[in-house]
Design a protein around this nucleic acid. Structure first.
Lengths: 326, 326
DNA sequence: CTGAAAGCGCTTACAG
DNA sequence: CTGAAAGCGCTTACAG
């Protein structure tokens, strides 16, 4: 049986408005009545109807998280599941619901504006690679709070990220420290800010060490394309003794495939990967990794968003350190 | 600017009730007015307020997915991210929202009843390992539709699962076909139905082949505990030439660690894992795997739930085949 | 076909 | 402190 505030008021012989006040901890109710009301509410497991509350309140107590719909999730290893879980947990612990939103691939640009209009969420967490200038404009105009996971060139706005350049430098430095000199860089989509930052870090570190930093390949994350590109790349730079790979998950495996096919000696060849993934450490050769604190970032995203919702001012930029494992 | 039905009615000079009918494609509106109303609605990007609609409708157009809050997600490899993504996508494509619910670990049993009372979702997808008899009872009483991902001993109810026993038999058969004779079984929590079914499959297949099937270890999925257990297990059964591992993700890696530590020759030793994970195929030795169609299962879960919500009768059991890769 | 009215369950001024 | 009333935005009988 689902009880409404009306029924509680009948049981306790008080007006609904008084029940509402008592239940919401507002003042203007005698302690005696409040206790009685709370007792009954507890007893019948009263829970306010979320929609009625949202409608009256103009507040849904729900935040939205946009996730990529094409979902080449394998790419990101456990990135997404950890991120989602962290956000869900943090949101729930703050009495917020989490709505997962998968943009319609046919018309991704409409998604955001629909969400805004529906008023189904109080705020939005958006992965930076999924946000467009148009989205930002629409969100700003509507006054819907949002934060980004990852920095984005399209908006100077509250975002959480890992120190991309720094991580790339540390990885490159680790390769150099191991004696590698002719290091190539395999990077993802060059339009993505994090790709640019990581490549930048690689180049700087190489330059500082006095090594050439011209062997750079940008590729999509698709397996076929990557492998084809790697073949040409290794032919163009046959003297490479190590590779800095700017993205984790399964991406490095595609590359390793080709290296094996080309008979590289992976025990001697150096590999450094931005992103960590337990399986790397079970390979028969060493891979240097930079792990991202994904869980922490998800929690920070959520906290920042809730601050925005509460009209507070969260840090506009939260940067987290990577941790090198070699 | 957020437009309400009221404003649309003012612009078009029609009553709100008529606008509502037009917008919802109900009959009782002249085609002329309907067109005009739709035109305006389109123009101003009208989207009905989700909460108001839910309140009037007694229907939220939102389904909930319960996810484990302790999240040893790494265990499941990409299981969770693929499942969540598949469900989100399918739900969204059917105009449903997906709410991710992370039970409060302090009081997990209250979560379900709170959800029921809040009336924030029209139905629930629950992983079978997270459902209790009490939950089922509460859901039934409240009449809230739900489906389970995975079969559960606590309820004969609409569920989607992989053919556990069959998959286990196929894996065991594959090991036997490779010439292994003294095969051990490392299983997860014995309270879980899928563990039982997989172990059963293993035992049957071994028995049919005329081999001993007494080397069985049940363990938690925790790394430390598993490794400690494996040490004792391999000492108790020093003659094993292969292992059937009943769960995938990173679990097998824990076991491999110990085998290496004990100087097993993994090129000769047989390994079969229930569950697939791309990284397995990059190890320097062969692992036989049974992959689960996680995405398909998520889609099926969603479809089944939506059928229940629409008062239709979905299949009470949808079983999917595993696919052996060796 | 069209619209005024009541209602979904809750909150929030506003009187008493 | 207490409660009657209006309102959140939408839907759904019910008259006209």
């Amino acid at each position: 049986m689902k009880y409404t505030i009306r029924e509680i008021s009948e049981i306790t012989n008080v007006a609904v408005s008084t029940v509402s006040k008592a239940l919401n901890g507002q003042k203007g109710v005698s302690e005696k009545k409040r206790q009685e009301i709370l007792r009954i509410a507890e007893k019948v497991h009263y829970q306010p109807n979320a929609n009625a509350r949202a409608l009256a309140h103009r507040k849904t107590s729900t935040i939205g998280l946009i996730v990529p719909g094409d979902a080449d999730y394998s790419l990101s290893g456990v990135y997404w599941s950890v991120l989602i879980a962290a956000i869900a947990k943090e949101a729930n612990s703050q009495k917020y619901n989490l709505m997962l939103i998968c943009p319609d691939l046919q018309r991704p640009d409409q998604t955001i504006s629909e969400i805004i209009q529906k008023q189904a969420v109080d705020g939005l967490i958006i992965p930076s690679e999924l946000v467009t200038k148009k989205d930002v404009k629409a969100l700003m105009e509507a006054g819907l709070p949002f934060v980004m996971q990852g920095c984005s060139p399209v908006a100077e706005h509250c975002c959480v990220d890992v120190k991309n350049k720094d991580g790339a430098r540390k990885l490159t430095a680790a390769l150099i420290a191991r004696g590698y000199k002719r290091i190539g860089c395999v990077a993802g989509d060059r339009k993505l800010l994090y790709t640019q930052e990581r490549v930048e870090g690689f180049m700087e570190e190489m330059k500082n060490a006095g090594f050439a930093n011209d062997a750079i390949l940008y590729t999509s994350y698709s397996k076929e394309e990557t492998q084809e590109n790697i073949r040409t790349f290794t032919e163009a730079f046959p003297d490479l003794d190590a590779l800095f790979i700017s993205a984790g998950g399964e991406f490095p495996f595609y590359i390793i495939d080709v290296l094996k096919e080309k008979n590289y000696d992976l025990h001697a060849f150096g590999l450094a990967v931005f992103g960590d993934y337990t399986p790397y450490h079970y390979l028969p050769y060493r891979i240097i990794t930079a792990s991202q604190p994904v869980r922490k970032m998800g929690i920070q995203d959520t906290k920042n968003l809730l601050q925005l919702i509460n009209k507070e001012t969260p840090p506009s930029l939260s940067l987290f350190d990577t941790e090198i494992q070699s």
